[in-house]
Design a protein around this nucleic acid. Structure first.
Length: 159
DNA sequence: GCCAACGTTGGC
DNA sequence: GCCAACGTTGGC
C-alpha cells in the first residue's frame, strides 16, 4: 500500500535544488533525531512512496516539489561520525538508534505552494503541517491531500 | 529576534 | 514515573 509523506528541510541546509543536482538525483535523508520520525523512517516508509519537499524557516515557507522513496530505512551512519553535527553516541553500528531512507528527485513545482496558500484550502485543514506547534520534520500525507496539492500546483502553472 | 509549542533531560 | 527546566523548531 503506497503512502505519501511530507519532508521538511531548511533550504540553507538542503534545498530541492540540492536534491535535483545530487548524483542520480538521489540522496540519503540523514539527521533525523526525533523518535516519532525515526519510527516512520524505520518502520513505515516503503520504496515507491512519494513525498513532498517542503522548505521551512525561509520566506516564504512551502511545498516546492516532489520526490520518491527509493530505499527503505537503514542506519543513519552520520550518527557514528564524531566530527558530524549529527553525531550521537547513543547510536552504534551494532545497535543503531537513528535511521534514514534514500529519496530521489521527481519534480520541482513551477511555483512554490506557500504555507499561506495551503491554509486557504479548506480540504487541507487537517494537514499535520498546518497544526500549530507541529515540529515533526516528516509527516504522513493522505492520498486526498496529495492529489489536492498536485491539482493546486497544476492550476498555478496555468495562471 | 521574538516567542509558542513541544520533545528531551535529569533530579527526585 | 513525575515534572520543571531547558533546548530546538519554525512561523512571524
Amino acid at each position: 500500500m503506497m503512502r505519501y509523506w511530507l519532508f521538511k528541510s531548511e533550504p540553507t541546509t538542503f534545498s530541492i535544488n540540492d536534491l535535483e543536482h545530487s548524483p542520480n538525483q538521489v540522496t540519503y535523508w540523514n539527521g533525523v533525531r526525533n523518535y516519532q520520525v525515526r519510527n516512520m523512517l524505520r518502520d513505515e516508509m516503503q520504496a515507491g512512496d512519494y513525498a513532498f519537499f517542503y522548505h521551512s524557516n525561509c520566506t516564504p515557507p512551502g511545498i516546492v516539489g516532489t520526490m520518491k522513496i527509493v530505499k527503505t530505512g537503514y542506519p543513519d551512519f552520520t550518527a557514528w561520525d564524531p566530527t558530524s553535527p549529527y553525531f550521537d553516541s547513543k547510536s552504534t553500528a551494532i545497535k543503531p538508534c537513528w535511521f534514514m531512507v534514500d529519496v530521489q528527485f521527481v519534480n520541482k513545482f513551477e511555483q512554490i505552494i506557500s504555507l499561506d496558500a495551503l491554509k486557504t484550502h479548506l480540504s487541507l485543514k487537517n494537514m499535520l503541517i498546518l497544526r500549530p506547534g507541529n515540529r515533526l520534520s516528516i509527516t504522513p500525507v493522505t492520498k486526498q491531500e496529495w492529489e489536492i496539492i498536485l491539482t493546486v500546483s497544476a492550476d498555478s502553472k496555468i495562471r
